[in-house]
Design a protein around this nucleic acid. Structure first.
Length: 461
RNA sequence: UCCUCGGUGGCUCAACGGCAGAGCGGGUGACUGUUAAUCACUAGGUUGUAGGUUCAAAUCCUACCCGAGGAGCCA
């Protein structure tokens, strides 16, 4: 068996030689005495054109195969007289493996992405999705490669968490209790001591608190896995199940944090440009004109770094009319973020040192006692792609913050312990894997970069 | 969750109170190099669901369901 990946790698050495290819029909055009089949074999983004003539014993049968059918084709690789391909295969025999039923939902025409979501089991066969999901795979590999090369240790933080205090959003409950007959305690609340884990359990919303513990063992660590948010958010950028990359570094402050984030983005983007040129060309042509140039510019550019206070200043002086008035202390709205990254800088920009009131309890208090060492990375088109911070490493200060935010100290006993046994300055961030894919490919909806997306009211497949 | 727009054949859409249509796809046939091939013929519909108004509803009204865009929450 020969593979398109290899043939495309050096097609000239195949010219005039026999080859055998197995794959699926993407398109078929037949005349009286000959026909063309466009075949993909899964190993490469590009397809091969099979030319077949009436001397084939199953010519009649073959000229009736449907889109999606599977074939094994033997023939000679020849230079193609056609304009759209350098080479093609002249078939000497074609074995029909399976003829797709004629109601195959993927047609030889453009479908809307919304329609393709309703046939998510079939959409990876289309050009768009075959490209998206190959990029997704390569990107995951590139992330591991980057961190491993830098000496980070990959930590598998739990998916089911006994902590309901990760502080990043609504959680999905994990239970084996009979929902029609839940045991109640004396206060008439659900008695979780009777549940599977003997306590309340949830799907994780973030691996951060867990991964921080491993910092004290390996210095530089990261977790990369699925996370879950039971938020009823219906946007192009949110899903109920998504993947996050969360590095955490000991002896690293917020500046080190930004440097690693920037280095990582550049590294993985460079990796994709190199390893998936065919897919990127496709996105350039059909999804977002200019996307390749956009990614190249990121790889070569210096990310901007401004403080929240400077950001507010820029927004106030911009003369722009915002729906939400700008004032020091507000949380930046989508329209503000977009203005900064798309209009003002037209580049990725780190915004740091946010007011403590609008950020999480574990973030390092700055000397001004008003702001914390938080950082968000904003990118054009997608908005917030990274959220991170330097962590509060002082035991007393962290306890105080937990109290101030009205949280329950007991829930954080092990997290607080880190600050008692060899505490150090440390920092980390969370990167939305899907948002990264969206930015790279130009795909506009998170549902179209997840194989089987989960969103409110939608868990088909 | 809120605001806006939409739901008509397998897909993409038209018809916007008065005969439910087109292109693509499917089927049948024609065609000696196609590239989303081309050409001819043909089958295919309880107009998202449930009510209501009307002589008459895809079209107007009400509720619900589903989808999209925007907002909030965030990654």
């Amino acid at each position: 068996m020969d593979f398109l990946k290899d043939i495309y790698g050096d097609y000239k050495s195949y010219i005039g030689k026999m080859a055998e290819i197995s794959g699926w029909v993407r398109s078929l055009r037949v005349s009286k005495n000959f026909g063309f089949i466009v075949l993909y074999d899964g190993t490469f983004f590009k397809t091969i054109q099979i030319v077949f003539e009436e001397d084939l014993e199953n010519f009649k049968e073959l000229s009736k195969v449907t889109i999606g059918s599977s074939l094994i084709v033997s023939g000679t690789i020849v230079e193609s007289p056609g304009a759209n391909q350098d080479f093609e295969m002249k078939a000497s025999s074609v074995k029909i493996i399976n003829i797709a039923d004629q109601d195959y939902p993927i047609q030889k025409k453009r479908h809307t992405l919304e329609y393709l979501r309703t046939v998510a089991h079939l959409r990876p066969r289309t050009n768009t999705f075959t490209a998206v999901f190959r990029i997704r795979s390569l990107l995951a590999f590139a992330i591991h490669k980057f961190f491993v090369e830098k000496g980070f240790v990959y930590v598998h933080t739990p998916i089911i968490t006994g902590s309901d205090a990760e502080g990043a959003g609504e959680m999905f409950k994990v239970t084996t209790l009979d929902l029609l007959n839940t045991p109640l305690n004396e206060e008439k609340n659900i008695d979780y001591s009777k549940d599977f884990f003997g306590k309340e359990a949830n799907l994780t919303v973030s691996g951060q608190l867990a991964v921080e513990n491993f910092c004290w063992a390996y210095r530089n660590v990261y977790t990369f896995g699925p996370t879950f948010r039971a938020e009823n958010s219906n946007t192009q950028r949110h899903a109920s199940e998504f993947w996050m990359i969360e590095p955490e570094m000991a002896f690293a402050d917020i500046n080190d944090n930004m440097s690693v984030a920037e280095e990582m983005i550049k590294y993985i983007f460079g990796y994709i440009l190199e390893s998936a040129p065919e897919e990127m060309e496709f996105f350039e042509k059909f999804i977002e004109a200019g996307v390749i140039e956009k990614i190249k510019r990121i790889v070569d550019s210096e990310f901007k770094r401004i403080t929240y206070t400077e950001a507010i200043d820029i927004l106030e002086k911009s003369g722009e009319k915002f729906d939400f008035p700008v004032k020091w202390g507000i949380d930046l709205q989508t329209e503000h973020e977009r203005f900064l990254t798309e209009k003002h800088f037209n580049a990725p920009v780190f915004v740091i040192d946010y007011p403590k009131e609008i950020k999480a309890f574990y973030m390092k208090m700055n000397k001004d006692n008003k702001t914390v060492a938080a950082m968000d990375l904003l990118v054009p088109g997608v908005g917030e792609i990274i959220g991170g911070s330097q962590r509060e490493e002082d035991h007393t200060a962290l306890k105080k913050r937990i109290e101030e935010m009205g949280l329950n100290e007991e829930d954080y006993w092990w997290y607080l312990d880190l600050r008692r046994f060899g505490s150090v300055v440390h920092s980390g961030f969370g990167l939305g894997f899907e948002r990264l894919i969206m930015y790279l490919t130009g795909m506009k909806n998170i549902r179209d970069v997840i194989p089987f997306p989960r969103t409110p009211n939608s868990a088909e497949f």
